[in-house]
């Protein structure tokens, strides 16, 4: 079943057209990845799904509801949570308070079990529970950003470059956890990544974005084997 359907979306920053008519969909239970070079419009597409900025043309449907004209906080309350680019945790608040903020739209009765679930996924966060979030390492902050998003009980989790600036070992750990979240918690994941190799290995399906257009799509393994993708995003790396 289609969970998120993006139909002919155009997004502008002033006069600059960042997205030039995007069509894609994310099905329930999938991990879908969007890869592309810097400035291709990946983050813009993710943010457009969240309503900031709003799409100028086209529609975005989440479980049949058009969310393209809704304000961000209402979209979140439908069950879409994101771990934004650059993590954007609250640096002067403790880990615990950050997780509380993630749960702020949810019924408090779920809080304890959700917290347990996040700590199971990221035992490191439990050790750091009363530490100021800004004083943690990049990897821990990324875990916190994902954990915070999970506290909002999402059905669709949007992840923007979770591997940014992290050591290869930590990247692997994060990606393993994403897989676990998808499998065990039944959360659909829409992953935006520059680290094409890891992302495509993990994803069920993938899209390739160039200059605000989707140029290719297909299964994760299929794209990974595609010579064009290899030439553009994978050669020289890994």
């Amino acid at each position: 079943m289609t969970m998120l359907k993006i139909e002919g979306v155009h997004t502008f920053y002033g006069n600059i057209e960042a997205l030039k008519g995007i069509d894609m969909e994310v099905n329930e239970g999938e991990i879908v990845t969007l890869i592309g070079a810097n400035g291709a419009g990946k983050t813009t597409l993710l943010m457009t799904c969240c309503g900031a900025p709003q799409a100028t043309k086209g529609r975005i449907l989440f479980e049949g509801t058009d969310i393209s004209r809704m304000p961000t906080h209402e979209i979140c309350q439908l069950g879409i949570q994101q771990s934004p680019e650059g993590r954007r945790i609250f640096p002067r608040m403790s880990v615990y308070e950050n997780l509380q903020m993630g749960a702020c739209t949810q019924d408090p009765k779920h809080f304890d079990s959700d917290l347990e679930m996040v700590f199971d996924l990221f035992p490191r966060l439990k050790e750091r529970i009363s530490q100021r979030a800004g004083t943690m390492s990049g990897g821990e902050q990324q875990m916190l950003a994902i954990g915070r998003a999970l506290m909002g009980r999402p059905r669709l989790l949007l992840l923007d470059e979770p591997s940014l600036g992290l050591a290869p070992l930590v990247v692997k750990q994060i990606f393993d956890t994403i897989k676990k979240i998808n499998k065990e918690n039944k959360v659909t994941v829409f992953l935006v990544e520059q680290n094409a190799f890891h992302a495509l290995k993990l994803a069920h399906r993938g899209y390739v974005m160039v200059n605000g257009n989707i140029t290719m799509s297909g299964g994760g393994a299929e794209l990974l084997a595609n010579p064009e993708v290899r030439a553009a995003y994978l050669e020289g790396g890994h």
Partner: peptide, 16 residues
């Protein structure tokens, strides 16, 4: 307090 720290993050967590 969260709003003071990061408004965009707040929005994406569902805070109005």
């Amino acid at each position: 307090e969260a709003l003071r720290e990061d408004e965009i993050a707040c929005r994406s967590l569902g805070i109005n």
